[in-house]
Design a protein around this nucleic acid. Structure first.
Length: 490
RNA sequence: CGGGGCGUGGCCUAGUCCGGUUACGGCGCCUGGUUUGGGACCAGGAGAUCGCAGGUUCGAAUCCUGCCGCCCCGACCA
């Protein structure tokens, strides 16, 4: 743990990987492309999960659980969907092992071949809609608002801790509605939930928009998304919400009796965020000293560190800190008193900075005698000595200040790196500088592909905010009615 | 799947070109002592089938052959 991080400037990618490992968030597992999420990292994910889960429930959703395995035939029922996912599916073909005849271990028993292979879910639309067929008969069964917390597997070529792993954790909402309008409204509502979570809890400003046809979810009519800007100028898709139209209802024959006695296909949405949000959180706020966490998601908001010489001093200072910790806890703050006598205080300071604990309180003999305490902010790396008597109120306000300040800092950076361009030269320069680039596009997938090929930039989204404005495509010069947002992305 | 790099105690690594006693060093770990307001110091200690399998040789971490795995860069993607 004594090592220093590579700086962001020197090698952003290396900085990220080292930070994830050294802050004890996750590590590579022995299984290629898969990671072990360590307790500290998982605690952050649990916070995210708890908050989101409550937000889903507050908007009328309930949780359920569907199988990990999907019969191969289900996946092929929706043509676009299977085309989108087929290339990255793990497939179960056998159900038994046996001892190898040469004694070298176990081998797959060829006699235990499955009649129909099972796909390890890359997403659950198919098995859920197959099930919904039996759940939905009438308009009275609608809307159906279900979410599941699960793991999924997508066999990607290249992986990165949290940002793209072969197996990842996520939630997927799958809803069924009576009308197209209602389904679109649901997709938009959940996008707002995601945006509120990102901004209000992660302190991460996001751009809400709609994906172009090229970037749309396989099987969706429309994909809404939130896009965030990372410190290295690359965009990260942080959440998606899909209007699926009647595609899955058609594929799985899910019809309902309408109010006027007819039969109609159900309208659908699906929406999800994943452990990728961990990557977003890390890359939005952290610095060269380590992780920086927004207080609202920090497993430990305040750490209290005693400084002492000898056992007597230790006893009295730890007692004082325990008292303060009790008061902070009573005020609803997540605290930890680190009275581990085998680690020195300086070591602890560095350790909690690396782990992104928002506020550190330190009390030494001088403070103890004078009734003061040292308050250190992780985000600004500043310290002040204050009167210990007013500590609870001070810390409460400080945590709010830090939460807001992290958002403001990220919002300022996102704004400053967003550029509006009207020519190809400006466009190229803006991309190299990093950040979002607002530009006109002729609306064709061909031009989008061409730009992607030439610059590695993709259209992150067509912003939802009204911004109709006539112009010409930066690449082809064809007329355009609206600017779209380009960026290089993760 | 293309291009590059790398496999040596838990982690990082020297040694490999040019084969030769007991495999260098650091971090971490254990014990004892001194320390403690920003990642302490001293002394002692434990811990390694040198990725795997063959081969060459009196002798292989080192040379040869085959295999496996991982990382990075690309294409693909949440």
């Amino acid at each position: 743990m004594a090592s220093k991080l590579t700086s962001r400037e020197a090698d952003y990618s290396k900085w990220y990987n080292e930070l994830v490992v050294q802050a004890d968030l996750a590590q590579h597992s022995d299984v290629k492309g898969c990671m072990v999420i360590k307790p500290y990292g998982f605690a952050i994910w649990e916070r995210m999960k708890d908050v989101l889960d409550q937000m889903f429930k507050d908007t009328g959703h309930v949780n359920a659980y569907f199988p990990l395995f999907i019969p191969k035939s289900y996946l092929s029922q929706e043509a676009d969907h299977v085309e989108g996912f087929a290339k990255e599916c793990a497939v179960v073909t056998h159900y038994r092992l046996k001892n190898a005849e040469d004694g070298s271990g176990v081998v797959v028993d060829p006699d235990a071949k499955l009649e129909e292979e099972l796909i390890v879910r890359p997403t659950s639309e198919t098995i859920i809609w197959k099930t919904y067929k039996n759940w939905i008969q009438s308009y009275r069964d609608l809307p159906l608002l279900v979410n599941q917390w699960a793991n999924v597997v997508r066999w990607e070529m290249r992986t990165r801790l949290f940002l793209r792993t072969t197996e990842f954790l996520w939630q997927e909402g799958h809803t069924a509605h009576e009308t197209s309008e209602e389904a679109v409204a649901e997709a938009r509502k959940m996008l707002d939930v995601y945006a509120d979570f990102a901004e209000g809890w992660m302190a991460m400003p996001v751009l809400k928009g709609i994906k172009t046809a090229n970037e749309r979810f396989a099987g969706a009519l429309d994909t809404y998304c939130i896009e965030a800007m990372m410190q290295d100028g690359k965009a990260l898709q942080a959440g998606t919400s899909h209007f699926l139209g009647q595609n899955f209802a058609r594929a799985f024959d899910v019809k309902f009796a309408t109010r006027d006695g007819g039969q109609e296909l159900v309208w659908a949405t699906s929406w999800g965020v994943s452990t990728r949000l961990m990557g977003a959180l890390i890359m939005t706020h952290s610095d060269d000293a380590g992780l920086v966490l927004p207080p609202k998601l920090a497993p430990i908001e305040v750490v209290l560190v005693p400084i002492y010489k000898g056992e007597d001093q230790m006893a009295e200072i730890v007692t004082a800190l325990n008292g303060i910790a009790g008061d902070l806890k009573a005020a609803g703050i997540r605290v930890k008193v680190d009275d581990d006598d085998t680690k020195r205080s300086g070591w602890k300071f560095a350790e909690y900075e690396l782990k992104g604990v928002p506020v550190r309180l330190a009390m030494g003999p001088r403070d103890f005698a004078g009734g003061t305490i040292e308050v250190a902010r992780r985000d600004t790396q500043t310290k002040e000595i204050i009167d210990a008597a007013g500590i609870v109120q001070h810390v409460k306000e400080l945590l709010d200040t830090i939460q807001q300040s992290l958002f403001d800092r990220a919002a300022k950076r996102t704004k400053e790196t967003t550029t509006r361009v009207d020519s190809w030269e400006e466009f190229l320069a803006a991309l190299d500088a990093g950040g979002f680039v607002e530009a006109h596009w002729d609306g064709t997938p061909e031009t989008e592909d061409l730009i992607k090929q030439e610059t590695k930039a993709t259209i992150r989204c067509i912003p939802l905010t009204e911004n109709h404005e006539s112009g010409v495509c930066i690449r082809t010069g064809a007329p355009s009615e609206q600017r779209v947002v380009f960026a290089r992305a993760y």
